[in-house]
Each structure stands twice: as structure tokens, then as C-alpha cells.
Design a protein around this nucleic acid. Structure first.
Ligand SMILES: NC(=O)c1ccc[n+]([C@@H]2O[C@H](COP(=O)([O-])OP(=O)(O)OC[C@H]3O[C@@H](n4cnc5c(N)ncnc54)[C@H](O)[C@@H]3O)[C@@H](O)[C@H]2O)c1
Ligand SMILES: NC(=O)c1ccc[n+]([C@@H]2O[C@H](COP(=O)([O-])OP(=O)(O)OC[C@H]3O[C@@H](n4cnc5c(N)ncnc54)[C@H](O)[C@@H]3O)[C@@H](O)[C@H]2O)c1
Lengths: 207, 207
DNA sequence: ATTTACTTGTGTTTTGATTAACAATATGTA
DNA sequence: TACATATTGTTAATCAAAACACAAGTAAAT
């Protein structure tokens, strides 16, 4: 199995399997069947088994998959290089929600820095994460070995900031601002916009 | 063209085309080429043209697509039944960010109600949207003809609330809680989890 | 022992979305 | 007019993901 060849869909599902297993299942049982995992996550059992196959994990015919082993295996695959440091840019409502959420969840992604421009927010820790002025981003990103940036700042500044962030050495950017980014090659970019999701829901909900 | 047959991917892209056009383009030009739209949204020109074809929209060989007409056409397709009322459940950080975001954007999705349990939040409007106690959800959903629900409340309550919301007649649910929902047939469900996105970014950013 | 019921693992098929290719069309130019 | 250029619209080819189908394993029941 060439791990880098795994389809995006599989990676997303692996993340969901793991969360489902660590959150709901591991406390009250040892094993789980493909159809159970599938039902929880709105998938088919075949797809679950196919994903298992892709990461080279096997279960038992009688008991399905051992939850602990499976979580271990998924972690080997998706956290392959261990812990990854994340910074959040813009500590408004959305930024705060995200920092809190990431701290609550079991994950190897650690929010190690926050950036803002508001003097009231800078130099005070938020949920024990230090908040810096955005002008120091280059230095802090290097010092703290930040790999992933989450953009939750106003759209006006987003593009310029993103370019600086990329230049500082970040290799993955999650963009929540409504501004489509044009980044240099080599930076993995993911964008999410709730309006797109909601318009889709509205469309398919109309029958 | 059977409008209900449009692939989910196309619907998502249509939403993005429209936002891109209304936000950035329509102020300073009349027409746009498929390759320009594509470059902005990280797509190929072929895909843009394919989407145009699917919704039965034509451009001109010399000038590409007329922006005003295209926006009009996209709106006919994705807002087919006009305005749709939305309610947000849970007015925490995430809920507030979403309400503000939806109000800022040009869209036919209107946030017409908010629900919470915190007495400090109830019966005060937030950004001029009324906030009700969650126990009144059935009545308010009917009165206000709410079609879409956005769940931004704590996970513990999410599943029970979702079932009640579905029963009250909502036909589309956007779930931001970390709890996977099991809903009755006929309710279109979309789930988003930033941790899945971030873990994906982290995975593909590692090279 | 044999049967039954249930599961995983995986080759095969199907589906459907994306990419490639190119003909048709419009415009500008020599 | 003939030619060069740039774009759309659409058919055909490609590709990948999902669904299907079933062999093979396992354990419990008979
Ligand atoms: N993609 C989505 O689904 C979605 C949803 C909601 C909001 N948003 C977007 O996310 C962003 C934040 O939304 P919010 O509701 O949290 O807004 P907010 O106004 O509450 O927060 C913005 C924060 O960014 C800080 N800021 C301003 N300029 C900055 C800069 N140059 N560098 C760093 N920080 C800076 C502000 O001080 C503030 O703390 C906005 O761009 C909004 O449009 C996206
Ligand atoms: N999917 C994602 O990417 C993502 C990101 C961040 C947070 N979240 C989730 O979104 C939810 C909200 O996050 P937050 O940071 O805004 O939390 P928060 O604590 O700031 O807000 C929760 C709000 O819900 C209200 N509430 C509590 N019980 C309720 C009930 N039964 N009915 C209605 N309202 C109720 C609370 O009064 C509060 O206002 C949480 O479940 C969190 O895990 C998801």
C-alpha cells in the first residue's frame, strides 16, 4: 500500500472512523462490525471494508474489527509524522469556537498559536494558547514550527496574510474566509464555506 | 434538463460561481470567461463549461458569459422556490459567527429564528433575529415556516433535538455538532466537521 | 459431523463525474 | 475574402469511487 495514494475520501472517512470509535465506542465494547460503523456514519459496509483493505487492516470473521487495533492503525496512517502544530488567525467568534473545539477533541493537531490585531486579545492566552500580533507571524511560525494555518480573519486581509503565512513555511491552509485564495504551489489548500453547504441543503431539501 | 438530477458537485459549484460573481466581478465588468471563473475557484475551464451546459446556460464565443444573466440563471436553479427560512440552534460562538455570516452575504436563505436555553440569550434579538427557548421549537418552526435547521448546540442534546426538529417539519439539517445523527427518511442531512478537514489538510500537507 | 448464520476480503461491474478533444462559431486582420 | 485567433458547446474517452456479488472463514446450533 502506498500511503500517499489514498484517495481524499478515504482520508476523510478514516478521520471519521477514528473519532466515532474513540468517542462513542471504545468505552463499552471491544469490537465493531463494518455495518455498524457504516450505519453510524451514513456509509455502506462495503465502503468501510474497502477502506480497511486500503490501509491494510484486517478484522475477524466472527467479531469484526478490534476497536483498539483499528484506532491504532488509522492513527499510524493519518498522523504518520506524529504531532502537528496549528495556528489560528483571527480570534473572533469563529476562531474561538474552533480553538475550543480542537482542544476538546482527542487529536494530534495542537493549536500552538493564535494571531490577531486587536490589542485586547493580544498577549493574553485564550484557553491557554498564546495570542500574538499578526505582524510577528513569521517569527512565531518558525519558532513554534507551525505547519497548518486556519484562517478566520476578515476577508479584506485574508489574501495578503495567506501569502505571508505560506512564505513563512506553513504547508497547509484551511480557509474559512469568503475570499478564494491563490497560493504558491506546494501549499495544500482547503476551503470551507457554510453558505455553499446551506444552499446545497436547501436545494436538495426542496422536493 | 431535469433540475433535480444535477450532481451535488455541480450545485456546490453553482453556489460558488454565484458568490464569486456577485462579490468580486459584477462591479467592474460585464462578462467573464470560463477560464477566469475556473482560475478563481480552483477548477478547470472544462468543468465550468460543463456546469453551464447542465443548467442550460450559454455564453458568447467572443465575450464569454454575461455575468448578470449567469447570476440570474444560477439563482433560478438553486433558489428555485424563492426564499427559504433557516433557524440556528445554539447561539454560542459558532452560532453567532454563522448568523452574522449569513446576514452579511447576499443569499435567499434568511435566518428567521434562533433557539437556545440560556435565559440571558432568550427573548433578546441577536443581530435583529429573535431568540427563543428551545422548548418552543415546534410552534415557532410552524409559525415561521422554517425549512432548514443549523445545529450549533452541545453534542449531548443534539440527537434528541434533531429528532424533534425533523418532526416539526424541517426538511434539511446542517449538523455541526460532533454527534452523527440518525434521522427519519426525507430529511436531507449534511454534516461538517472541521477536525476531519484539518486532519486531511495535515495529511496531504506532509510530503 | 453437518448445517446454518453471519462475517470479512476482494475481484468484478456499474455508475457517474471529470478530463480531453475537437467541431462550430464569432471576431479581428491582412 | 481568406486567414488567424480565441472561445464556447458537446461528444467521446478516461478515471475513480461505489456497489455488487460471492468465496472463504468462523462459530454456534442441531
Ligand atoms: N466559511 C464559513 O463558513 C464562515 C462562517 C462564518 C464566518 N466566516 C468568516 O470568518 C471570518 C471571521 O468571522 P467571525 O465571525 O469570527 O468574525 P469576527 O469579527 O468575530 O472576528 C474576526 C477577528 O479577526 C481579527 N482580525 C482582524 N484583522 C486581522 C488581521 N489582519 N490579522 C489577524 N486577525 C485579524 C479581529 O480582531 C477579530 O478578532 C470572517 O472572514 C467571516 O466572513 C466564514
Ligand atoms: N463541526 C465543527 O467544525 C465544529 C466546530 C466548532 C464547534 N462545534 C460544535 O458546535 C457546537 C457549539 O460550539 P460553540 O463553540 O458555539 O459552543 P458554545 O458553548 O459557545 O455554544 C453552545 C450554545 O448552545 C446553547 N445550548 C445548550 N443546550 C442547548 C439546547 N438544548 N438547545 C439549544 N441551545 C442550547 C448554549 O446556551 C450556548 O449558547 C458544539 O457542539 C461544538 O462541539 C463544531
Amino acid at each position: 500500500m502506498d500511503i500517499k495514494k489514498l484517495p481524499e475520501g478515504t482520508i476523510e472517512r478514516l478521520s471519521k472512523y477514528r473519532r466515532c470509535l474513540t468517542t462513542y465506542c471504545k468505552f463499552y465494547r471491544e469490537n465493531i462490525f463494518s455495518h455498524e460503523l457504516a450505519r453510524n456514519l451514513h456509509l455502506t459496509p462495503e465502503q468501510v471494508r474497502r477502506d480497511m483493505m486500503l490501509i491494510g487492516h484486517s478484522g475477524s470473521h466472527k467479531n469484526g474489527y478490534n476497536i483498539e487495533e483499528l484506532v491504532e492503525k488509522i492513527s499510524e496512517v493519518i498522523d504518520c509524522r506524529g504531532k502537528t502544530n496549528v495556528a489560528v488567525f483571527g480570534l473572533g467568534n469563529l476562531g474561538q469556537a474552533i480553538v475550543r473545539y480542537l482542544q476538546d477533541k482527542e487529536t494530534r493537531l495542537n493549536v500552538e498559536a493564535i494571531f490577531d490585531v486587536n490589542p485586547e486579545k493580544i498577549n493574553k492566552p485564550f484557553l491557554s494558547v498564546d495570542c500574538y500580533h499578526i505582524k510577528d507571524l513569521k517569527r512565531i511560525i518558525k519558532e513554534k514550527d507551525i505547519r497548518i494555518a486556519v484562517l478566520t480573519l476578515p476577508g479584506d486581509d485574508a489574501h495578503d496574510m495567506a501569502l505571508e503565512i505560506a512564505e513563512a513555511g506553513v504547508t497547509g491552509i484551511m480557509n474559512f474566509t469568503p475570499v478564494p485564495l491563490k497560493l504558491p504551489e506546494g501549499v495544500f489548500l482547503e476551503e470551507y464555506d457554510i453558505l455553499t453547504s446551506l444552499e446545497k441543503v436547501a436545494f436538495f431539501a426542496k422536493k
